[in-house]
Amino acid sequence: MSDQIPFVNYLALGDKPHLVANECTSCGARFFDRRNACASCSGTEFKDAAISTQGEVRTFTIVAFAAPGVDVPYISAIVDCDGTSVRANLVNVPADPDHVKVGMPVKLTTFPIGKDEEGVEAINFGFEPAA
């Protein structure tokens, strides 16, 4: 498994892949980026918070026309994971408005996006319909 790395720092791989947020210890606000301080309360202490892998689509768009090099169409969505909003692509579902609905239940999934020259595979995450 050592030849796999997560696509972003806030994705934890292993047996049960999940996202990890920086949670402000004074107000509970959650962030996925590297933090200096909290945007809600200006606190500077954070702890790791595991994010639920189950969620509900809060909103989405199907991008059909993108910058050069970006594969289209893709579904961009905001997923509400038990009160924490996550930005992600929806995968394993046709990219058309008949198959994607706001409010649909989804779950986290991971997939390889390619190997570099040293054979290391980068693993990204997305959300797929939760049957």
């Binding site: 972003v8 993108a66 970006v70």
Partner: peptide
């Protein structure tokens, strides 16, 4: 969301999310 850069020869983390390559279109838009 400018043109996506070609992925590097080796994965290298950059930015505040520590992404190893361009995020636009891979983690939302």
């Amino acid at each position: 969301g400018g043109a996506r850069k070609k992925d590097g020869k080796s994965w290298e983390r950059s930015g505040r999310y520590g992404a190893v390559a361009s995020v636009d279109g891979r983690i939302g838009t």
